[in-house]
Deep mutational scan, measured.
Amino acid sequence: TFTSIVTTNPDFGGFEFYVEAGQQFDDSAYEEAYGVSVPSAVVEEMNAKAAQLKDGEWLNVSHE
């Protein structure tokens, strides 16, 4: 299960995956970082959410 939350205070020191406002979700980078295949429906969902981000916001993507 993939989830996401919007934050204005990303923790770059941890093992977190963020999408910056104005960027798209990079499923290849996510797969490389976590060894998890990302279904195309999830990629579309995360890109739709990322498109709604305002300046200074980040989308924190995770999975269980």
Rank of each mutant, 00 (worst) to 15 (best):
T1P: 08
T1N: 09
T1S: 12
T1A: 11
F2T: 02
T3K: 10
T3A: 07
T3D: 05
T3N: 10
S4C: 13
S4M: 08
S4I: 07
I5Q: 11
I5R: 08
I5D: 06
V6T: 07
V6N: 02
V6G: 03
V6W: 01
T7D: 04
T7Q: 04
T8I: 09
T8Q: 10
N9C: 14
N9L: 09
P10E: 02
P10I: 05
D11P: 05
F12M: 08
F12L: 10
F12Y: 07
F12R: 07
F12G: 05
F12V: 06
G13P: 06
G13C: 15
G13M: 11
G14V: 07
G14P: 08
G14T: 11
G14Y: 06
E16M: 14
E16L: 15
E16V: 08
F17D: 01
F17E: 01
F17S: 02
F17N: 01
Y18S: 03
V19N: 01
V19L: 06
V19C: 05
E20W: 13
E20A: 14
E20Q: 14
E20P: 14
A21G: 05
A21S: 09
A21P: 07
G22A: 04
Q23Y: 10
Q23E: 09
Q23D: 08
Q23L: 08
Q23M: 11
Q23R: 09
Q24E: 10
Q24D: 08
F25V: 01
F25Q: 02
F25S: 02
F25C: 04
D26Q: 06
D26V: 05
D27E: 15
D27N: 14
D27G: 15
D27Q: 15
S28L: 14
S28V: 15
A29L: 11
A29T: 05
A29F: 07
A29W: 07
Y30D: 01
Y30M: 03
Y30G: 02
E31K: 13
E32Q: 14
A33Q: 15
Y34R: 06
Y34H: 08
Y34G: 01
Y34I: 03
G35A: 06
G35R: 06
G35Q: 07
G35L: 05
V36Q: 05
V36D: 03
V36R: 00
V36M: 08
S37T: 14
S37R: 15
S37I: 12
V38D: 04
V38N: 00
P39R: 00
P39E: 03
S40C: 13
S40L: 13
A41N: 12
A41I: 10
V42M: 04
V42K: 03
V42S: 02
V43C: 07
V43P: 00
E44L: 11
E44A: 13
E44G: 07
E45G: 03
E45R: 04
M46C: 07
M46W: 11
M46E: 04
M46Y: 05
M46P: 02
M46A: 05
M46G: 01
A48L: 13
A48Y: 12
A48E: 13
K49G: 07
K49T: 09
A50E: 03
A50L: 09
A51W: 05
A51Y: 06
A51N: 09
A51P: 05
Q52A: 13
Q52M: 11
L53A: 00
K54C: 07
K54A: 09
K54W: 04
K54Y: 04
D55M: 08
D55E: 14
D55C: 11
D55N: 12
G56K: 04
E57S: 03
E57A: 02
E57W: 05
W58L: 00
W58F: 09
L59Y: 00
N60C: 15
N60R: 15
N60H: 15
N60Q: 15
V61F: 02
V61Y: 00
S62F: 14
S62E: 02
H63M: 07
E64C: 13
E64F: 13
E64G: 12
E64P: 08
E64Q: 14
